[in-house]
């Protein structure tokens, strides 16, 4: 039990510290935004693109867009007919990406050759590309015309949650 618990605590602490170190240093952090399609053809592709744009615009407005992001936001949106009208359900997957030094070490040790005869042909960078640790899943439900307001409220909450993770806590 201890053998499994200790490493888990170390991992969570290290991930949290790496995010908090940046938060506490600059009092801000970066997010990357991408959306998940549901195969070809995706019946809701245009809606998901609209939602993706709303998130990117909000991140840019707050100066939170960055190529070396602390948190990856993966989005999916679909319309639903509710008794009180047409609503959009947005699923936001908050993920933390594998650090570059670990990917580089995987390349150096040729981990791709450990996955069986065919896996050796795949670059380890492709195996690790877009891999995240799913940290949290948030859902929004809103009419299409109030989407921007909901997205803004979500960003307020995300900033609040990350700020609350700091040693001083929330006030």
């Amino acid at each position: 039990m201890v053998r499994h618990t200790l490493p888990a605590i170390l991992i969570v602490s290290t991930l949290l510290c790496s995010v908090l170190a940046r938060v506490s240093a600059a009092q801000d952090f970066d997010v990357s935004v991408s959306w998940i399609d549901a195969g070809t053809p995706d019946p809701h592709a245009s809606l998901v693109e609209d939602v993706d744009r709303a998130f990117r615009d909000e991140a840019s407005r707050r100066g939170m867009s960055g190529t070396d992001a602390d948190v990856d936001l993966l989005l999916r949106a679909e319309p639903h007919d509710m008794p009180h009208g047409a609503y959009i359900q947005v699923s936001i997957v908050e993920g933390i990406r594998i650090p570059k030094n670990i990917v580089s070490s995987g390349v150096r040790h040729q981990l791709n050759k450990m996955g069986g005869p065919s896996a050796g042909r795949t670059d380890i960078r492709n195996i690790f590309h877009n891999m995240v640790s799913v940290h949290n899943v948030v859902q929004l439900l809103a009419p299409r015309d109030s989407l921007d307001k909901e997205v803004s409220a979500y960003f307020d909450d995300l900033v609040y949650r990350l700020t609350c993770s700091m040693a001083e806590g929330c006030r």
Binding site: I36, A38, G39, L74, R76, E78, H80, Q89, S91, V93, G95, I98, F128, N130, M131, V132, S133, V134
Partner: peptide
């Protein structure tokens, strides 16, 4: 770690 393959609602 994993690759997010799909989100079903």
């Amino acid at each position: 770690q994993g690759r997010v393959h799909r989100v079903s609602q």
